[in-house]
Design a protein around this nucleic acid. Structure first.
Lengths: 215, 215
DNA sequence: GCTGGTATTGACCGAATGGTCGGGCGCGCG
DNA sequence: CGCGCGCCCGACCATTCGGTCAATACCAGC
């Protein structure tokens, strides 16, 4: 049974894209052969070349696809209401959840960011970054102007810190799970709650920490 | 002129290791051919097989090497003296500096952590993690027991947060540099100072943030 | 000079790679 | 019907891959 909507993309093409996305998200570009993709898609290798001129184009298409999907997914995490503090809590929570919901997409895009050798499509990969960043910075600035947040910190830095906390958690969850003192490896909600809590209140008992000797 | 110390490893082997490390840090395992390594090392491909039984063993040796070097490098970042707050500042600063000083090693090890498909040597890669982690957690706990730090936060979580801030900065520096609101992309010291500052003091003006509605 | 082990090499191997080609299948349309 | 055209495939190609091997060059000890 076909989709009710008239599907623009022929379904063979999408089968290929799905298979390629699946494989490329686990292994690097050169580690995935066209044969493997064809096998996973249940078609012949030659057929892939009917839809894509070469392997690079296919990879690029997969990355563009993943990038757009990831952007849409993360886009939803931005919207929230209530106090700035509430918005921050929601944002952190939903952002991390979005990452964990689609680990394949995230790994795919993130690997492209890290690979120095062949910048195949950093533009795509960086878009999601920009969205999250500007949104978060805007939230923080609003909080500052409203007086709900301190005015003497750099919003961009805090945005980096929060995004980094989530990305790092996503990346190293499997490793973190091995260490006994870590209890939050399987509790992303608890992790984010703790992170935001610390960011808001700080580590020192009073707000009277001596900051004069920062070097 | 040779080293004054008697070198255990024959120098051919080290040439190979150096070349392989160079190439493997830029491109993934399958994207680096034995031919390329031989070329870069200025020797014949067959000669590589005199020192290493196969490509996997060579890669493993490179990774073990990189892992140990990185560990040694990071190990120095732990030691510091003064108040806990000072130790924390030093730690953050030197940890990030260590990452930035040897980007190749870090990328090499970190890629191994991220790759799901073939866990070639996660053990090696995870060692550095454990070191940093336990050291940081110990510092934080000391701070808590001394009353210099709040007692109601999870030390492991804060350790994750701080380590993540540095790793994330390292990973996405090139991207961060593109965004106008970010001024710290080329100022790791300033970044870490800001991060620690926020961690210590928190984002809210008073320490009276309402935490009753954390979900 | 001879010997034996180490270092090093070019030539070579089978397998797998990315990519091509000619043709067959099926369906809509004149 | 048959004609054309997307869709799809088996077979094939040149190249490159990881890896092998026999043969050197080299050098220390006898």
């Amino acid at each position: 049974m076909a989709d009710l909507l008239p599907v623009i993309e022929c379904e063979g093409r999408q089968r290929i894209l799905a298979a390629a996305e699946d494989l490329f998200s686990d292994k690097a570009f050169d580690a995935v052969s066209m044969n493997a993709i064809a096998l996973q898609a249940g078609i012949s290798k030659a057929n892939i070349y009917h839809y894509f001129p070469n392997k690079d184009a296919l990879y690029l298409a997969v990355l563009r696809d993943a990038s757009q999907n990831l952007r849409a997914l993360l886009h939803d995490a931005v919207h929230a209401h209530g106090t700035i503090v509430d918005v921050l809590r929601h944002f952190a929570r939903r952002h991390l959840q979005a990452l964990l919901d689609r680990p394949q997409l995230v790994r795919l895009v993130w690997r492209e960011i890290l690979e120095k050798g062949a910048p195949r499509a950093q533009e795509f990969a960086e878009q999601g970054f920009a969205d999250m960043f500007t949104a978060l910075v805007a939230v923080l600035k609003t909080g500052q102007s409203r007086g709900e947040l301190r005015g003497d910190f750099d919003p961009a830095l805090v945005a980096t810190l929060l995004l980094g906390a989530n990305v790092f958690f996503f990346q190293s969850r499997d490793i973190l799970r091995h260490y006994p003192p870590i209890t939050f490896a399987d509790d992303p909600a608890g992790y984010d709650a703790g992170v935001v809590e610390i960011l808001l209140r700080g580590l020192v008992p009073e707000s009277s920490v001596d900051t004069s000797h920062i070097r």
